[in-house]
């Protein structure tokens, strides 16, 4: 069987298209590359959507934590503490069993027990908490002169936030936020190992890598392939975030522009 045939059969296997059965014997390198790559679709799906949605909640959380209203402040602090203080792995398990219990009470919530929605919600809340803390730190370190100058020019309320506070906060937080994004993509590999079932063997990249390692009893091929894919994904994330970083800093003199330094700390 040629490699093109394998790609046609298994390229979209993680979404349920193509060959129904996974390969059973005589595993070729092509099969391993194709299936693990197919699984990456899920990692990208979880990562991109959670980051996009999490960004907005994180801004709200940062503002809430810096708020003068007691209730908003406490609520944001607790939210951030709960999601940053406990392992994501346990959060997945808890959420899955919570959704399973809820399903028996409210049948309309059934989609939440599937990974595509349930795990996405957990990742979304989790990244919002981590990013919220980063944004909060950045919010506190906005130079006093910037906000005073905004006041002097007559900015206030929404306008001041939209044009001065928010862009400065993002600019200061961006290097740390890039790390958080990389870190989140890595965390997406936990999904199918933490309660959420991979229905009809539609899993993510690590799920397939683990499948091959179990079947061939040889971890030295599938895991390096997975590692290669993730290094490419990490480089892509750095590229995209670098473009945004350049835009956020475009008003600064060239020498003062901060470079993105990548220091991911991997486990959450």
């Amino acid at each position: 069987m040629s490699c093109w045939q394998t790609i046609a059969d298994y390229g979209l296997r993680s979404l349920g298209y193509g060959e129904r059965l996974l390969p059973r014997g005589d595993f070729t390198l092509c099969q391993q590359f194709t299936l693990i790559g197919s699984g990456m679709i899920w990692n990208i799906y979880f990562g991109v959507l959670a980051l996009l949605a999490g960004f907005f909640l994180a801004t709200a959380l940062a503002l809430g934590k810096a708020s003068r209203v007691w209730l908003l402040r406490k609520a944001s602090e607790w939210f951030i503490f709960v999601f940053r203080g406990s392992p994501l792995f346990i959060q997945f398990f808890f959420a899955y069993f919570l959704f399973v219990s809820l399903k028996s009470a409210v049948p309309a919530l059934a989609p939440f027990t599937a990974a595509w929605l349930g795990a996405l919600v957990v990742l979304f809340l989790n990244t919002a908490a981590y990013t919220g803390e980063i944004f909060y730190g950045a919010l506190l370190s906005i130079p006093k002169g910037d906000t005073e100058a905004a006041d002097a020019y007559g900015f206030s309320g929404w306008n001041k936030f939209r044009k001065i506070t928010w862009p400065t906060m993002l600019r200061l937080a961006w290097p740390a936020y890039t790390n958080e994004a990389i870190f989140l993509f890595h965390a997406t590999t936990l999904v199918f190992f933490s309660g959420f079932p991979a229905l009809r063997q539609r899993g993510d990249a690590l799920y397939y890598a683990n499948y091959f390692a179990d079947k061939t009893f040889n971890p030295f091929i599938p895991y390096p392939i997975l590692a290669g894919y993730f290094i490419l994904l990490t480089l892509a994330v750095i590229g995209v975030y670098g473009v945004v970083n350049a835009r956020l800093n475009r008003h600064l003199p060239r020498n003062d522009r901060p470079k993105l330094k990548i220091r991911p700390k991997l486990i959450r």
Binding site: H186, A187, T189, L190, F193, L206, A209, N210, A213, F217, P219, F220, Y223, L226, A227, F230, I231, T234, R263, P264, L266, I267
Partner: peptide, 21 residues
């Protein structure tokens, strides 16, 4: 560099078999 660029859980799954073998 290698450990920092790859999901940790992949390492956990990898090393347990690799060390054993």
């Amino acid at each position: 560099a290698v450990v920092r660029g790859v999901p940790d859980i992949a390492f956990f799954l990898f090393f347990v078999i690799a060390l054993d073998q």
